[in-house]
């Protein structure tokens, strides 16, 4: 098992390929989660606003 930090990072010169792999995976997958949750939040806020508006219009009618 790899324990000292140096060998973890360098991975005998293959670290230059391994760490970008894991970094890219993190960026892509986390990025997709953030985009999805922000879209969900926006839709929820807009839906609540419209439902409020629709309810108010019905009360006035």
């Amino acid at each position: 098992m790899m324990n000292d930090t140096n060998s973890i990072l360098s991975m005998t010169e293959h670290g230059a390929y391994v760490w970008p792999t894991y970094g890219l995976a993190a960026v892509v997958l986390i990025g997709l989660v953030v985009l999805s949750l922000r879209a969900l939040g926006r839709s929820r806020a807009e839906l609540e606003r419209i439902e409020l508006e629709t309810g108010r219009q019905r009360d006035e009618a």
Partner: peptide, 11 residues
């Protein structure tokens, strides 16, 4: 393959 085998776990 040395450590590059670790790429397999994502790829």
């Amino acid at each position: 393959q040395g450590h590059t085998v670790r790429i397999m776990y994502i790829h």
